[in-house]
């Protein structure tokens, strides 16, 4: 510990030297890391937007339950109150027969004239239930078995497709994030190994003078961390520019796409990028300097 504190200034100086002595390769590493982290930022932005979309889609997961003949309006409202307490039910709303008629009229559009053929309203009152997609099976089974419910129209096919889309978006985001993380680790550890290779004479001398591995490795770890943080800074700057310039126009072009608030999202992504760059820099550098340990 004493050696570490007495030599902190030296370690910092050596880290800067490691970067300065090989400017071109370190410039490329900085740019490479910066752009990869920028890509990661884009993925995060996409993920955040996707998450908002997923949330919105999940809110649209809806089933309809129809009452048995003997259930009057008061009975229906009791059933709905009970329904609302079920785990996985977000919202349950009583739709009167008149409301059902108006809805279908709107849905049928030009074909709505057909409804004039009926003397009475052919539609019944029902309950409109918004459910948690992840608990779909459980909720449907509970609603179907409720006393006073005769039939549940679950649109299972549509719900399952919706769930598939949501899962695919989440999986894609995870895969891209993992790919970016691994690529950054490889770049950083390669960069550190290059630094070690360029300085192998110096490392050998330090070894012969009795330097412990941590003493030899520390400047390289600092250099890796510094370069990755600089790359993270570049990526964060690009993300801020992108958010200021292009983010709102996405919303203008794709009207149906729900977007999270720009400033909040920007702050979140910049914090994540800087945190991730520090973590990746540290892990990548430690991975890179493991070659020092292996050589004894």
């Amino acid at each position: 510990m004493k050696v570490f504190f007495y030599n902190l200034g030296y370690f910092i100086l050596e880290a800067f030297r490691t970067i300065r002595f090989h400017p071109l390769s370190n410039l490329f590493s900085f740019l490479g890391t910066g752009f990869i982290l920028f890509l990661f930022g884009l993925v995060l932005t996409g993920w955040a937007v996707g998450d908002e979309l997923v949330g919105a889609l999940e809110q649209e997961a809806q089933v309809s339950a129809y009452f048995a003949d003997q259930v009057g309006e008061a009975g229906a409202k009791q059933i709905i109150t009970k329904m609302k307490t079920l785990d996985g039910v977000w919202e349950a709303r009583y739709v009167t027969a008149g409301e059902a008629y108006a809805k279908n009229r709107e849905l049928l559009g030009n074909e709505a004239e057909i409804l004039r053929l009926f003397d009475n309203n052919p539609f019944e009152a029902f309950v409109e239930i918004k459910i948690d997609l992840n608990k779909m099976d459980q909720v449907l089974s509970q609603i179907s078995s409720m006393k006073g419910i005769e039939y549940v129209r679950d649109n299972r096919d549509i719900l399952e497709k919706l769930k598939g889309i949501v899962d695919a978006i989440k999986l894609l985001g995870g895969v891209i994030a993992a790919a970016v993380g691994i690529t950054t680790l490889v770049i950083i550890s390669h960069m550190i190994r290059q630094g070690i290779y360029h300085n192998k004479e110096q490392i050998n001398t330090l070894r012969l003078l009795g330097a412990p591995n941590s003493f030899i490795a520390f400047p390289f770890v600092m250099a890796g961390l510094l370069l990755t943080l600089l790359g993270g800074g570049l990526a964060a700057a690009l993300i801020i520019v992108m958010m200021n310039q292009g983010y709102q126009s996405i919303g203008e072009y794709i009207m149906f796409l729900p977007l999270p608030p720009a400033q909040e999202l920007c702050r979140f992504i910049v914090a994540i990028i800087l945190g991730i760059s520090a973590a990746l820099g540290l892990v990548g550098s430690l991975f890179g300097v493991s070659s020092i340990q292996k050589e004894g």
């Binding site: 050696v3 007495y6 030296y10 003078l209 009795g210 330097a211 003493f215």
Partner: peptide, 10 residues
């Protein structure tokens, strides 16, 4: 550099 390894005050 030879002394740094020994932890001698700067």
């Amino acid at each position: 550099i030879g002394m740094r390894i020994l932890g001698i005050p700067p």
